[in-house]
Design a protein around this nucleic acid. Sequence first.
DNA 1: CTCAGTGCAAAGGATTTGCATGCCG
DNA 2: CGGCATGCAAATCCTTTGCACTGAG
Lengths: 144, 144
Amino acid sequence: MPLEIDATVAARLRRSGERYTGNRRALVEILAREGQPMSIPEILAAERALAQSSAYRNLSVLERAGVVRRVVASDEFTRFELTEDLTDHHHHLICSVCGQVEDFTLPSGIERTMRRAVSAVSDETGYNAVSHRIDLIGRCPRCA
Amino acid sequence: MPLEIDATVAARLRRSGERYTGNRRALVEILAREGQPMSIPEILAAERALAQSSAYRNLSVLERAGVVRRVVASDEFTRFELTEDLTDHHHHLICSVCGQVEDFTLPSGIERTMRRAVSAVSDETGYNAVSHRIDLIGRCPRCA
DNA sequence: CTCAGTGCAAAGGATTTGCATGCCG
DNA sequence: CGGCATGCAAATCCTTTGCACTGAG
């Protein structure tokens, strides 16, 4: 796992008044290694020693600390990924059949356009602190 | 409810080999009237006579027939809305606190740009029949 | 020592399903 | 008439929680 991520995570947990325990480090490591949103079953398969309840509890802690983000796909599982500032700004390709999620990025020009549009909408509607999320839905090559 | 929607729904159900029953018509009517994604509790509150299981079952039938679409917000409830071709292409503002969903549209130029970008990504990744979904996340005026 | 973190098992809660009955086609 | 739709209640299954125990600080 990149040292920088590790240090940032440590700092954020400290700021939230939470410890950086072995289980939490393991979770961050798995998510960093995988680089794609992972469901709890996938995480548990990758880390046999981790109790299911600890996975849920710690991911929740990491979410509140701003380390991981919840991703909703098309199947019954919530997925988790490291927040964008630990990795990079990206979006998701979601397979409508199997629910698998893949990352992709948009050209920076389009991102700029989107940000402008988003802040315009935010002004018009009275919603504040608006972030955007762009998902593409289709069939992955395996399910096509 | 607009006659045109009613006729289209009837046709799609027929094509799926499904009946257009009273409950199904009531669901379409409520969703058309509301014009915003609705959760099951909201739907049941609007239609007291409808059994919860019938709501779930019929919305599922309507989804398979291409009449309604599932919308995932930020709370624990799945929401439902009429598909875009029965209404219009739009996106969602999701309140990160209460989960309420509101519609908004983007300027057509931006939509065009997005469609081009989406098809480029689709070509690169091997995903096909890709549609896009843009959600803005923020706090609605009531929760701000 | 203390208290947060952990694992196990049980509870919770949205959604699904089994089954007997009613009604549309 | 026959089969799908319906309502009720029970079952499912992801997720959360209670509790006793362990380990880090």
